[in-house]
Amino acid sequence: MRILIWHVHGSWMTSFVQGRHDYLLPVDAERGPDGRGRARTWDWPASAVERTSEELAGERVDLVVLQRPHEAGLLEAWTGLRAGIDVPAVYLEHNAPTGPAVATRHPYADQDAVPVVHVTHFNRVMWDNGTARTTVLEHGIPDPGHLYTGERESLAVVVNEPVRRTRVAGTDLMLDLARDLPVEVYGMGMDQLVGRAPWLEGCVHEDYRQSELHRALGAHRAYLHPYRWTSLGLAMIEAMTLGLPVLGLSTTEGPRAVPAAAGLLSNDPAELCARGGQWLREPDVAAEAGAAARAHALEHYGLERFLADWDVLIEGVVA
Rank of each mutant, 00 (worst) to 15 (best):
V61C: 12
M240W: 01
L265Y: 13
Y23G: 08
S53R: 14
A103P: 06
G302M: 07
G277K: 11
D172H: 11
D22L: 12
V64G: 04
E93I: 06
S53A: 14
L272R: 08
A83F: 02
A216W: 02
H139V: 01
Y148N: 04
E153Q: 11
R228D: 03
R275N: 11
H9F: 09
Y23F: 14
R133Q: 14
P107K: 14
L298V: 03
S47N: 13
P144Q: 01
D43K: 11
G170A: 08
R256M: 04
H106V: 03
W229D: 11
V258G: 09
D43R: 13
V49C: 11
A77L: 03
G302F: 05
R105E: 15
L147I: 07
G37V: 10
V258S: 13
W6D: 12
V157P: 06
V49N: 09
I3Q: 07
R164L: 14
M1D: 07
L66G: 05
A287D: 01
H214I: 07
D176A: 14
P198H: 11
V8R: 12
E71D: 09
S15F: 05
R38S: 11
T104D: 15
V8A: 08
V87N: 04
R256I: 10
L249A: 04
V61S: 09
V157S: 00
E71Q: 15
P283K: 00
V159H: 07
A235H: 03
A178C: 05
V183T: 08
E304I: 10
A197H: 06
A48F: 01
H225T: 08
E153R: 10
A156D: 05
V185A: 06
T171A: 06
H300L: 02
M174W: 00
P182F: 00
P269M: 10
H106G: 10
D180E: 14
H220L: 02
F306P: 09
R20N: 08
V204N: 00
G276V: 00
L242N: 02
A48K: 00
R40I: 03
W12S: 04
G202S: 03
V318Q: 03
S53H: 07
T14D: 15
W6L: 13
G277E: 08
L247P: 08
L81H: 13
T41P: 00
A96D: 15
P144K: 02
R228G: 05
L298S: 04
D112T: 13
V64H: 06
N267S: 05
A262M: 10
V318N: 00
W199E: 12
R165C: 09
G58D: 14
R152S: 00
D34A: 14
N95A: 13
M190W: 00
E315F: 05
A57K: 15
A222D: 07
